[in-house]
């Protein structure tokens, strides 16, 4: 009934060393959707994203993205297929300027000859960064660094952007700004996978949501439906 999914995850298992974290999860994302994963701390949300990006010690099952099988592929090649990941801890590179951090996102991509143009576009989308391009990135506030991490991940025009708790520890004004950006991105045809503790806000912009617990997907429904379901929210999302 639906067109083929952009990302299809089947029976995905993953390990940190010898700890078996993901217990065989299924996940599907269609082009143009905002999909959200919610669940308590330690449920395995970050591990899910890291597995899709190829950063786990060991993973089994299948991950298909835009017609390619990812499981055996190095992370940098997944990026070139159009898969971007914003770490929970942001990972702004200290010792580099804001501009240099953004350039890292373009430098190895097929867009690198258009670097100047892309930077101008990003500056337009992120006015807060525009004023600070030559500033050392590490001296910015947490919220600004998060914006930078998102800008850097978008620089090479990815098809799917995975964002791990982007609103964590950020001033409310900036959170609103960030979520407005997400809706804009969706309108522009981007696809987002979002992990959020700010459940209501996330569900309000998402199309669908997965609920995760102890390394498994325990429930999955349209976001609007979950938004009304207080019982489920309390059972799986209260911290």
């Amino acid at each position: 009934m639906k067109s083929q999914a952009l990302l299809t995850v089947r029976k995905l298992e993953a390990w940190y060393g010898r700890s078996h974290i993901l217990q065989g999860i299924d996940l599907e994302i269609h082009a143009g959707e905002i999909v959200c994963i919610i669940g308590r701390n330690g449920a395995g949300k970050t591990t899910t994203m890291r597995s899709i990006m190829g950063l786990m010690d060991k993973a089994r099952g299948s991950v298909h993205f835009d017609g390619h099988s990812l499981l055996e592929m190095a992370p940098h090649r997944r990026y070139h297929l159009g898969l971007a990941y914003v770490f929970e801890e942001r990972r702004i590179v200290p010792g580099l300027t804001v501009l240099e951090n953004i350039r890292l996102g373009i430098i190895a991509s097929r867009h690198r000859e258009r670097e100047r143009h892309i930077i101008d576009e990003i500056a337009e989308t992120f006015p807060r960064l525009q004023e600070r391009l030559s500033q050392m990135a590490a001296t910015m506030s947490g919220g600004e660094q998060q914006m930078l991490a998102i800008a850097r991940a978008m620089a090479a025009d990815p098809k799917l952007i995975m964002l791990d708790e982007p609103s964590e520890g950020i001033m409310p004004v900036l959170v609103d700004e960030m979520f407005e950006l997400f809706t804009k991105l969706k309108k522009a045809g981007k696809t987002l996978l979002l992990v959020e503790q700010n459940v209501e806000l996330a569900l309000s912009i998402a199309d669908r949501a997965y609920i995760m617990d102890q390394g498994s997907m325990v429930h999955h429904a349209p976001a609007a439906e979950l938004l009304k379901d207080q019982a489920i929210q309390e059972r799986y999302c209260s911290v």
Partner: peptide
């Protein structure tokens, strides 16, 4: 500073 971040930004 951070080789991991390079990997997810497409750098070999």
């Amino acid at each position: 500073r951070d080789p991991l971040v390079l990997k997810v930004l497409g750098i070999d």
